[in-house]
């Protein structure tokens, strides 16, 4: 392969550079008029060119699409650019709450509280504010509690390509199927305390 990139690869690179969110293969096809396979190959040509040229950028698959990112090795210097402006790391409460929502979505707050055994008000609020979770509807049960699910921003934040890439997916899936009765019962006990914003 030569040192210069072909037209399609350059188009893909430019799109990844200008995009504010990951671009799916389908979206790249749509924008360039190329086919799926051609896009996949163009992406890997960009990847190769970047790594061979010793560039500070990489192409990664995040939240269902390709994204241009900086090399983690350079995190220190880039962090300085945003000093004082970056939101802090999530608390353990927020991470646990997020994990429960991610694996059981869409799910109610009562469900999260049943799993964690504590009130999750402020953790849920933080996650909503940071747009890692959104309201996905209401459960058709008495009280019609709100249902929450995770967002693409959540996947991006944790470097996940898709929900299927969540850690311990099989293990937790099995556990969730197993203890459904007991979890529901526990959820019922906590539900009484739940309130809802009109």
């Amino acid at each position: 392969m030569g040192m210069t990139l072909d037209r399609l690869a350059r188009e893909v690179e430019a799109l990844l550079m200008a995009s504010e969110k990951p671009l799916s293969v389908e979206h790249l096809c749509e924008l360039t008029g190329a086919g799926t396979e051609a896009i996949e190959q163009a992406v890997s040509r960009v990847e190769n060119a970047l790594s061979r040229g010793g560039h500070a950028m990489q192409v990664v698959f995040l939240a269902g699409g390709y994204r241009l990112v900086t090399d983690p090795e350079l995190g220190g210097v880039v962090s300085r650019l945003f000093e004082g402006r970056r939101p802090g790391r999530l608390t353990r409460a927020a991470l646990e709450t997020l994990a429960v929502v991610a694996y059981s979505q869409p799910c109610t707050r009562a469900r999260v509280e049943a799993v964690r055994g504590v009130n999750c008000d402020s953790a849920m609020k933080t996650l909503l504010e940071r747009e890692f979770i959104v309201i996905a509807g209401r459960m058709e049960t008495p009280g019609r509690p709100l249902l929450y699910s995770t967002t693409p921003a959540f996947l991006e934040y944790f470097g996940l390509g898709a929900l299927e890439h969540l850690p311990r997916l099989d293990e937790i899936g099995k556990l969730l199927a197993l203890g459904a009765d007991d979890l529901e019962r526990a959820a019922g006990e906590i539900q009484e305390e739940e309130y809802e914003n009109p």
Binding site: L68, P72, S79, R89, A99, F158, G159, P167
Partner: peptide
């Protein structure tokens, strides 16, 4: 299980905090 999943997410969070994306 969720606590451990959360711990793994914390690691990912740490790793990906050093990664920056173009603002587009």
């Amino acid at each position: 299980a969720f606590r451990e999943a959360a711990a793994e997410l914390r690691e990912s969070e740490g790793a990906w905090r050093d990664v920056f994306t173009p603002p587009g």
